[in-house]
Design a protein around this nucleic acid. Structure first.
Lengths: 102, 102
DNA sequence: CACTGGTATCAGTCGCCACTGATGTGAGAG
DNA sequence: CTCTCACATCAGTGGCGACTGATACCAGTG
């Protein structure tokens, strides 16, 4: 059985601005305006990144009048953490399993 | 205090081929030739990625005659897993902390 | 209805990075 | 020594994606 990590999910989180967004949302549920203030990025740019995060299932939206609240989905991050933990566990014993030189 | 995840480390792992390498090394300590067989990638390409992983401190090298063994550093992956776990923990209570609309 | 403000979408530009072929290096084998 | 093989480095190229301005959309307000 092959312990593997979701590549697409990591690629989504690999962008500095997106990771910043995720970090902010991990502490507080915010709407786009707040994120513009916090990150200093343009609204268009931020909206693009939020779309990526939404389509990746990392965040959820909750409309509130004219505003749109974004909140992080903890189970997605937790699942990723689990995959890395499993990988690290495997790696601890990988030094013993050394394939011989061809 | 701000729970944050190492962006550079994630960016290193965000490449499909590099993640494949990391996954393989998590199960077995291998040398470049093995990785060429397993991934099907060119030796040059693979060597470039291994350099990135080396400089990021994700893998260690161990010379063995003409061969070079690569092994994963478990503590790096474990640290990353810990950061995501912490982030997920925070996110579980983030729904309660909703900043009011401006 | 018109107007304002929050958010999403569109089309275009630009820079970074993954991949390539060619070449360099260094250790064993003969 | 020479030759071979494992691996690293170099220079060049192509494509994806982050960012931008302009614009469309939609919900409240008056």
């Amino acid at each position: 059985m092959m312990t593997s990590v979701d590549t697409d999910l990591i690629r989504v989180l690999a962008d500095p601005l997106r990771l910043k967004i995720v970090t902010l949302l991990a502490h507080e549920t915010l709407c786009t305006t707040h994120l513009v203030e916090e990150t200093g990025a343009r609204q268009t740019n931020l909206s693009n990144h939020l779309k990526v995060l939404r389509e990746a299932g990392v965040v959820e939206t909750e409309p509130c009048g004219r505003f749109t609240y974004y909140k992080l989905k903890p189970e997605v991050i937790a699942a990723l953490a689990g995959q890395f933990t499993e990988l690290a566990e495997h790696a601890r014993t990988a030094a013993d399993r050394k394939r011989s030189c061809p």
